[in-house]
Design a binder for these strands. Sequence first.
DNA 1: GGATGTGAAGTAGTTCACAGCC
DNA 2: GGCTGTGAACTACTTCACATCC
Lengths: 231, 231
Amino acid sequence: MATPRLRSKKLSEPTIARLPVYQRIAEGWSQRGETKIDSQQIGELAGVTATTVRRDLAGLGSFGTRGAGYDVSVLIERIAGALGHDRHYDVVVVGIGNLGHALVNSSSFLIRGARLVALYDNDPAMIGTEVAGHVVKALSDPIPPATVGVICTPASAAQEVADRLVDADIHAILNFAPQVVTVPLGTAVHYVDFSIELQILMYHLNNGTGPLGGGLLHSLGIASTNPLRGS
Amino acid sequence: MATPRLRSKKLSEPTIARLPVYQRIAEGWSQRGETKIDSQQIGELAGVTATTVRRDLAGLGSFGTRGAGYDVSVLIERIAGALGHDRHYDVVVVGIGNLGHALVNSSSFLIRGARLVALYDNDPAMIGTEVAGHVVKALSDPIPPATVGVICTPASAAQEVADRLVDADIHAILNFAPQVVTVPLGTAVHYVDFSIELQILMYHLNNGTGPLGGGLLHSLGIASTNPLRGS
DNA sequence: GGATGTGAAGTAGTTCACAGCC
DNA sequence: GGCTGTGAACTACTTCACATCC
């Protein structure tokens, strides 16, 4: 009864992108022993206004305390609920090169609800070795019907891997390869591209949008040494 | 005289995020020997409408040919100009673990205009080894006044590294560590967080926003097998 | 004919300002 | 007093529809 059907309320795209940022901030606060946080502080760290934070959080139900702010643990819980961390996701990773290693060994990649179920590579030297507690399999081995497939191969292999994932009945792909892949309708592909991040940063540098400049999505976290004026 | 002061026109944030995607598509088209592309085709691959593509590109000056589309090489050139690829950027990378390796060895990370100038790590076993043509230096060594600093360390070291970069007069930081860092005003920090990408994807899965769902920033590239209807 | 480029309309997201509650 | 939550105003982005030009 604690967190019922939150799934009904539709959150806006920008809000969804900001929630994980707030959650990370709340977790940091929690580790430092803080028990309360207010919208001003969250906004300061996330690089957005306090009003935006409040509107985003209001969409998850009203759980703040007027005059006091948000309870850190409740905040973490609510965001987790809204993002669906209470469900379970099986994740397979294809391409265990440097990037694949970095992902599966990262403590932060697999958040609550996500579970790594299999690793694949096509390098014979790699196949059979154990990485992050899983034996790396050959690409020709069957792929279980997981929830999410992560592509960490070079661009040249990305399309072939995407086809294999689709055949394995996987409908959500996170693609780290710098390559646009074609999939049937009904499959979502989300691209992550390091060079694009670098390019966006460079644009802002050139245009003096720099300091506070709008690096919105993923948040441009600027915290001044003098957070807020008193008067 | 070819690409003069394009830097005057201010592009919107969403447009800036899409331009690198269009550029990647154009490069793929170019490699396949195509010489022309139209807004319909770009939109199809990028996961946005043709109108959006046209408005984005119109902001770079009118270089399309009515009735025929855009010249692929001119398109690549114009986007490069708008994003400031004609300038030079010195990039330093701190933290040469799996992720750092993946970045510096990636053919796509360092786009035109960006040049890797130094690598740093604090692992004695790593220092002195050569990676991607550069000898890895100790963090205590002086950091040259580069344009962009990339943090690939664990979260625990991120703040310390950010401080060092700021001391070295670096005003743009790309932070891959899952950690919010505090920097003085005047320094831009752009966060890249794999787990956030995964969380956004999962949210869409839960909510059936799936197939065409709005995964806007970085683009959610959906291409149907039947790109455009004839009639 | 066919695709660009753009005013005008529509939609979505943010910010203001303040009522409500602790 | 202080901070949340939210109608109302505003701003920004997208989409429509079509004039324009090759």
